[in-house]
C-alpha cells in the first residue's frame, strides 16, 4: 500500500519532467521555437519600418517560419543607436535579427570608425527585400528641364546650386557626390533630417534640386520634375525617367537604398542557413509582393551569397569615396 501511495506522485512528477524535457528537446531541435524579434533602427511609420512589417507579415505561416516576427524600433543617430545595440548586446541565438540599410551602415562604419561599433564583418546578411534608388528632382517651376540644363548652370555658377538630401553619408548624399564627380561640377549639399523634409524643400522651392527616394518622389510627382534616376536600369513606375548613365553621367547603383535582414555574426550556421533559405521565398510570396507593389516599393530579393559579395564591393567603393572624411 505504502509503496503504491508514494509511487503516484513520483510517476506524476516524472511524467511532468519528461513533458518539460520533451518540449525543451523539441525547442532545441526545431528552430524557431518562439517569436523572432526584428530590430528596425528607424522610427515607426518610416519606409524602412513599414516595409519591414509588410515583408515579415507571413512569417507565422507554417510553410515559412511558423512563428511571428515582432518589430522593435530603436531609432537614433541615423540608425547608429540601433545597430550599435545590435552588435554589442543582441543575443546570437537566431531570435534577434535586424533590418539593415545599405549603403547607410557601411558608410557610417567608414566615416565614424570609433562611434559605429559595426562593419560588414559583424553582420551576417540573410536576404535583401527591397531597393529604393535615388532620383534627381527639381521643383515643378524650375528652369531646369533636364540633367544637362542643371549641369550647365552649375558649371557657370560653381557652388550656387543647392541640392537637398536626407542627411550626410546616406544614399542621397552618395548619389550627389557621384554625380558631382561624373559631371565635373560643384554644388552645395543641404542635408535635412530625413528624406521627407528634404523632399518638401524641393517642392517648396527652398532648394534648387534634390536627391530623394524614388518612391517618395513618385508620390509627389505632380509638384516636381524628376530628371533622372541613379540606378543601373530605369524604375518600373517611372518608365520615362532616364538613368544618369543614359543622360551621360557615369553614376552606378551604389547610392541605391537596399533594405534587408541580417543576423549578428556568431549566430549558429544552421540557423542562418534556415533563415537564408526561408526569407527569399517569403519575400517573393504573391501576397507580400502585391502589398509591396501597392505601396509603391520596389521588391528586389537578393539571396545571401550574392548579398555578401555586394556588401564587400560597396564597402570598397565607399572607402575610396570617403577616404578624406574619416573621423576619429
Amino acid at each position: 500500500m505504502k509503496k503504491r501511495m508514494s509511487m503516484k506522485p513520483m510517476v506524476l512528477s516524472l511524467a511532468v519532467l519528461c513533458t518539460i524535457l520533451g518540449f525543451a528537446g523539441v525547442g532545441a531541435a526545431k528552430y524557431p521555437g518562439k517569436p523572432i524579434k526584428l530590430m528596425v533602427p528607424y522610427p515607426p511609420g518610416g519606409a524602412s519600418d513599414f516595409q519591414a512589417r509588410i515583408v515579415t507579415m507571413l512569417a507565422q505561416e507554417e510553410k515559412y517560419l511558423g512563428q511571428p516576427i515582432v518589430i522593435i524600433n530603436k531609432p537614433g543617430a541615423g540608425g547608429m543607436v540601433g545597430w550599435n545595440w545590435f552588435v554589442e548586446s543582441a543575443p546570437k541565438d537566431g531570435y534577434d535579427l535586424n533590418a539593415y540599410n545599405v549603403p547607410h551602415f557601411i558608410a557610417q562604419s567608414i566615416v565614424y570608425p570609433k562611434k559605429a561599433k559595426y562593419k560588414i564583418g559583424t553582420k551576417e546578411p540573410i536576404a535583401n527585400w527591397g531597393a529604393d534608388p535615388a532620383v534627381l528632382i527639381v521643383p515643378r517651376d524650375s528652369p531646369f528641364n533636364s540633367v544637362k540644363d542643371l549641369v550647365e548652370y552649375a558649371k557657370k555658377n560653381p557652388g550656387k546650386v543647392t541640392v537637398s538630401g536626407g542627411g550626410n553619408f546616406i544614399g542621397h548624399h552618395i548619389a550627389l557626390i557621384q554625380f558631382n564627380r561624373a559631371a565635373g561640377i560643384q554644388t552645395t549639399h543641404v542635408p535635412y533630417a530625413g528624406g521627407v523634409p528634404a523632399l518638401v524643400a524641393v517642392v517648396s522651392g527652398e532648394v534648387m534640386a534634390g536627391f530623394n527616394n524614388s518612391s517618395d518622389a513618385f508620390r509627389s510627382k505632380e509638384r516636381l520634375k524628376i530628371l533622372a534616376v541613379a540606378d543601373l536600369g530605369r524604375c518600373p513606375f517611372l518608365p520615362d525617367v532616364p538613368t544618369l548613365k543614359e543622360a551621360g553621367y557615369d553614376v552606378d547603383d551604389t547610392s541605391n537604398n537596399f533594405r534587408g535582414i541580417a543576423a549578428p555574426a556568431g549566430t549558429p550556421a544552421e540557423v542562418i542557413a534556415k533563415l537564408a533559405d526561408v526569407f527569399p521565398k517569403m519575400f517573393n510570396d504573391k501576397i507580400v509582393a502585391d502589398k509591396m507593389k501597392e505601396t509603391g516599393c520596389v521588391l528586389d530579393v537578393i539571396p545571401r551569397a550574392k548579398l555578401k559579395e555586394k556588401w564587400v564591393k560597396t564597402e570598397a567603393l565607399l572607402k575610396d569615396m570617403f577616404k578624406d572624411l574619416i573621423q576619429e
Binding site: 537614433g76 543617430a77 565614424y112 562611434k115 550626410n168 542635408p191 533630417a193 530625413g194
Partner: peptide, 9 residues
C-alpha cells in the same frame, strides 16, 4: 549626440 542633418557628434 549625433546631429540629425550633418551626422556630426
Amino acid at each position: 549626440g549625433s546631429h540629425p542633418t550633418t551626422g556630426e557628434f
